[in-house]
Nucleic acid binder design. Structure first.
Lengths: 135, 135
DNA sequence: ATAAACCCTAGAGCATGGTCTAAGGTCAAA
DNA sequence: TTTGACCTTAGACCATGCTCTAGGGTTTAT
């Protein structure tokens, strides 16, 4: 059984983060020592590593919550359910990707229209472009 | 001179948003009517459209603040300064882009390793992959 | 025995970009 | 004149993901 600081070190997160995850239902309390210290089992360690893995691939804590429910009830779920979940996330990520690409393009258009020279920016094309009504 | 609701309609933002921008120093008060109503001039309209344009190309409100300062003092700035600012933002956007692409790839790897079939997810490769220690 | 290092709780604070509420005052039309 | 649509303020609230503080108890090493 690990104390919170030990698990925190193991998982490279802060103690506060672990308590935060607990408060938000991502990781269930487990046991407590006589003095009220949290004690983490193997299962808890596994769960934390699941959370961190999911965070790393871009799931929000909310989505991880849902994933954990899928995991807990996985014997009643099909692979199809799980894959659907991931695919839905992929399409969200695709939207964000498109949005960021759009932004990048706009910025590049701005930048390349500007001479970038020494002259005062009184009539800088960048500032002028930003002032234009878009709606 | 426009009242706040008129400018809000014109700019397609809420009245609250305009007051919020004012509170955060993005748009200076301008005049007030006898009853204390905000009155927006042509210059203010121009400024709002600048803010909205900048938001649309992906600048944060903080960055817009800096851009507005550049705009106000543009006679003392060079095109070089302005272009530098935009280019710095482009490199931030590039980082975000790379991060999102990484996430997308991870998700696709997860998804494509999963059979997606009817069988119970007891040994679903997705859940297993998420559980693996990454550090 | 005492100080350092750890643990606990509840709750505030941060950054981002607003939205909403309460409790009022004002203005225009019917 | 009274209703409804508009305006004012200060401050609370939302989501996201923590981080920090205050005020306390415990454990461990010297």
């Amino acid at each position: 059984m690990l104390k919170i600081g030990e698990l925190a070190a193991l998982a490279s997160v802060s103690r506060d983060t672990l308590r935060f995850y607990e408060k938000h239902g991502l990781i269930t309390p487990g046991e407590r020592s006589g003095a009220g210290y949290r004690l983490y089992s193997e299962t808890d360690v596994h769960r934390i590593s699941f959370i961190i893995g999911a965070k790393e691939v871009g799931f929000t804590l909310n989505e991880i919550h849902q994933l954990l429910e899928l995991e807990v009830t996985k014997d009643e779920k099909s692979c199809y359910d799980i894959k659907q979940f991931v695919d839905a996330k992929i399409s969200i990520v695709n939207q964000r990707l498109a949005e960021i690409k759009r932004i990048k393009k706009s910025l590049q258009t701005l930048s390349s229209a500007c001479c970038g020279g020494d002259e005062p920016a009184t009539h800088c094309t960048i500032l002028e472009a930003l002032s234009e009504q878009t709606n």
